[in-house]
């Protein structure tokens, strides 16, 4: 950004920014607890449609996993606060979000012990080890999920049919996710089922509709940067679309990419994490497209059917670098 600022040609004092000339994108780690608190609870509210759909589709197991994960996350936060001699930070709601997000990414049949472990790792290693809210490099919920994926590869990939499909019995019927079906059996799932979520999958990822309702609320209230879901989802449509256009028999179409797996959940609620996503606009676009590229490569050519988690974690890791290289020029400073 090269905005001429005549007032700044010399002088050590801070530059007065001309109105409406410089686009400012501030880091949103607010330091007043009240604002952080209110944003965090709004995010919880925005997640509630997805959580409700999870409970509707998967019944009691979903309730148990969500409660376990949230309680374990909050307790871990409280214990670490005590150990570090800090004031309790559990009322800011961030641990609740982490616990809730983690739960929504778990398969409905996942064990309670594993859920607790994931929540402890998410808060303990993913967040508090780096210094608490605002200092973590990776999205804590996804870090916890990555730990679980590496620890319990079978438990994390055993899916059960939604109660609405299974008839009377809720558990016991194992199924594959739409992406798993595509990758290993080359079978497509209907868009309608994908959209409302009547498919196998993690608790909160199945219903695109429910996530979109909450996600749009976040965007409208400006708690999430609209550029992230737009660049991520748009990138997947374009990159996935290119592959599909060249070999429609070999690769799934872009709409399938969009609606299946955890893409929409990840794009609205995890990639947009205020702490771990970039600040400048250019960096945000690169961030979104980078995630899209990694996701499509993993889905089409990787050993795993799904790549949302790794695409977000990997781009989280380069976020500081993106911020650094896209930093707007600072005018008015004397060259040393």
């Amino acid at each position: 950004m090269s905005i001429p600022s005549p007032a700044s040609s010399k002088g050590k004092s801070k530059l007065k920014e001309p109105e409406n000339l410089l686009i400012l994108a501030s880091s949103p780690h607010l330091h007043t607890t009240t604002s952080t608190q209110s944003i965090m609870w709004q995010v919880v509210l925005a997640l509630s449609p997805a959580a409700t759909m999870a409970i509707y589709y998967f019944r009691w197991p979903a309730v148990v996993i969500i409660l376990t994960s949230v309680i374990a996350a909050v307790l871990t936060e409280a214990v670490i606060n005590r150990l570090k001699g800090e004031t309790l930070t559990i009322t800011d709601g961030s641990a609740v979000i982490t616990g809730l997000l983690l739960a929504l990414t778990l398969p409905p049949t996942f064990s309670i012990g594993g859920t607790i472990l994931g929540a402890v790792v998410a808060i303990g290693i993913g967040k508090q080890l780096f210094g608490g809210l605002g200092y973590n490099i990776f999205n804590p919920a996804l870090l916890g999920r990555a730990f679980l994926q590496a620890s319990f590869p079978i438990g994390m990939t055993t899916w059960s049919t939604p109660a609405t499909l299974a008839g009377s019995a809720v558990d016991g019927v194992s199924t594959a996710t739409p992406l798993g079906l595509y990758k290993f059996e080359h079978a497509l799932t209907g868009y309608a089922d994908l959209f409302v979520g009547n498919v196998g999958g993690s608790l909160g990822e199945t219903s695109a509709l429910a996530i979109l309702i909450g996600g749009l609320y976040l965007l409208i209230r400006r708690f999430a940067d609209w550029r992230i879901p737009v660049s991520y989802l748009g990138g997947v449509v374009i990159i996935g679309g290119i592959f599909w256009a060249f070999a429609p028999n070999q690769f799934p179409d872009p709409v399938f990419h969009l609606l299946s797996g955890g893409l929409i959940l990840g794009a609205f609620f995890m990639a947009t994490d205020m702490v771990t996503s970039p600040i400048t606009h250019l960096a945000t676009w690169i961030y979104g497209i980078g995630m899209a590229l990694i996701l499509v490569i993993i889905r089409l050519f990787g050993g795993l059917p799904e790549g949302v988690m790794y695409s977000i974690l990997l781009m989280n890791a380069v976020t500081p670098l993106l911020n650094r290289y896209t930093r707007p020029k600072i005018f008015g400073e004397v060259q040393s």
Binding site: S111, G113, G114, L117, I125, F147, A150, S151, F152, P153, G155
Partner: peptide
């Protein structure tokens, strides 16, 4: 006890 597979993989070593 369900073993934590990650511990015998490289990330477990770093952790």
């Amino acid at each position: 006890f369900e073993p934590w597979m990650v511990m015998i993989l490289p990330p477990g070593a770093f952790l």
